[in-house]
Amino acid sequence: MSDKLISLLSGIIFGIGLVISGMTNPEKVLSFLSISHSWSAEYKWDYSLIFVMGGAIITAAPFFYFLKNKEVSSLGLKISLPAKQDIDKKLVIGASLFGVGWGLVGFCPGPAISAIAVFDPIVLVFLVSMAVGVLVKQNIIK
């Protein structure tokens, strides 16, 4: 199978996982981020997101461990793992700002793209803004 077909298939599987998990619904993500619900008597906290991330990590981790010394993938492509990332200002500020944006809407990049499937034009407004954010970052910070 070609690289493009594999990419399409991986995206499809990922997207199906996202819908089944409920993460394409911003309300579901915001319900997780509503941490005050965890001690509220009035609301029940929906911490499903922990199960989504947990399920994905537990599935992927053993494979990453056993494949970590491989240099070439099954398609014969060079394995490109990111270099060890410094815990620096960029990481801290970037992750902080991403979290704020995530909390404002309940969208991170994957679910926002998958949500095109619900045909709500506001999703496209989010995606265009996200693309602008990416381009601004590329142009002002090396």
């Binding site: 298939l9 199960f51 099954s74």
Partner: peptide
């Protein structure tokens, strides 16, 4: 949530195993 998460994990593994 767990089922969806496992499917996402499988996609990550499949993509990494094939494309690196």
């Amino acid at each position: 949530a767990l089922v969806g998460g496992i499917i996402i994990g499988l996609s990550v593994v499949f993509y990494f195993f094939t494309t690196g």
